[in-house]
Design a protein around this nucleic acid. Structure first.
Lengths: 188, 188
DNA sequence: ACCTGAACACCGTTCAAGT
DNA sequence: ACCTGAACACCGTTCAAGT
């Protein structure tokens, strides 16, 4: 999994991007039962090409999650650099949530991944996880984060916010949700 | 849906119970991709019998959720009757969670229902929802529940706890999770 | 009324042929 | 290297026949 792949042929690369974009839009529209055939067609490629890149439907969903995770890592590092340690944790959580606020496909994928843990996305998690761990530690030191919070809690807490985005009809109902969680994160 | 059904024939009733028990155990073991055929076989009935009671796989999962919801209603009423209004909300949430702590099938079903809302289980929700609404209102009056909490938040908050049960490997990791949520529920 | 399971349909996945 | 789509396999669902 430490795959340092060499670049794809130009057309293949374009196809890959189209596939991902199509997957994102069809999953968002139709939910998890959007069909592989339809995604391929929407991307303008044969079904075989889709399977060449993503050997299973689940691997395609995972790819959607993975892309966002990489974005999450960038966001987390930026927040760590630029935000007061006392506010950093709530800030990342909000920024991460906002990053996927309109990505129904991601929200869906998070809930449908057969065994997600936030462990699932092995490599991508590492950097992100390390950054989050530091942010949490500093928050504790600053006295704004409850002592018994663990890094592993982060994933599920975020997961529950994305679920809220997907389920709550009210446009930005997830914010009230997250506000509750953020309040709970503070020391007693 | 205001179906007041007359009782099933004795053998049919027994089959129904077996089907539900089998579904619970197979979903718990194998996740959502447990097969209808296998569930029928495990229950000792033909596949046709399974479909006679549950016209789709999703309706079978919904049934598992529905049973628990009825139990939830009973629990909520009991808590309302016997617990200090100031503590009632955290108490129901804990008791509801404990009720499904070992029911992996329920946890899974909650996450897989195509459009859950907690709205999904129409009739069963009503009583439960009304009780929860009163508990929340009294909690606010007692000053132990934040003012901007809505009844509809309850479902998603609980949902995130069941997700935690399913995902967190740590035996009772969901308790720490819920503790955070409960803390967040209190006024600022 | 209820049960059964063979048959059907749909959709995820494979693979031989093509550039 | 990569693309294609017909063919295959699996599994959810139906329905004609049986008690």
């Amino acid at each position: 999994m430490t795959t340092t792949e060499r670049p794809l042929r130009a057309d293949a690369q374009r196809n890959l991007e189209r596939i991902i974009a199509s997957a994102r839009s069809l999953f968002a529209e139709q939910g998890a039962q959007a069909q592989m055939e339809d995604i391929a067609a929407h991307a303008g490629v044969g079904i075989g090409t889709l399977y060449r890149r993503f050997p299973t439907k689940e691997s395609l969903m995972t790819a959607l999650v993975r892309e966002r995770f990489q974005e999450f890592a960038v966001i987390a590092e930026e927040v760590e650099r630029t935000t007061d340690p006392a506010d950093a944790l709530p800030t990342v959580m909000r920024r991460h949530a906002e990053a996927v606020e309109h990505d129904a496909a991601f929200q869906l994928a998070m809930m449908n991944l057969e065994s997600f843990h936030w462990q699932g996305i092995e490599e991508d998690k590492k950097v992100l996880r390390a950054t989050i761990a530091r942010i949490i530690a500093r928050g504790k030191k600053a006295g704004t984060v409850r002592a018994n919070l663990r890094v592993d809690d982060y994933g599920i807490l975020m997961c529950s916010t994305t679920a809220a985005m997907y389920f709550i009809t009210d446009k930005s109902g997830w914010r009230r949700q997250q506000e509750i969680i953020l309040a709970g994160l503070r020391p007693e």
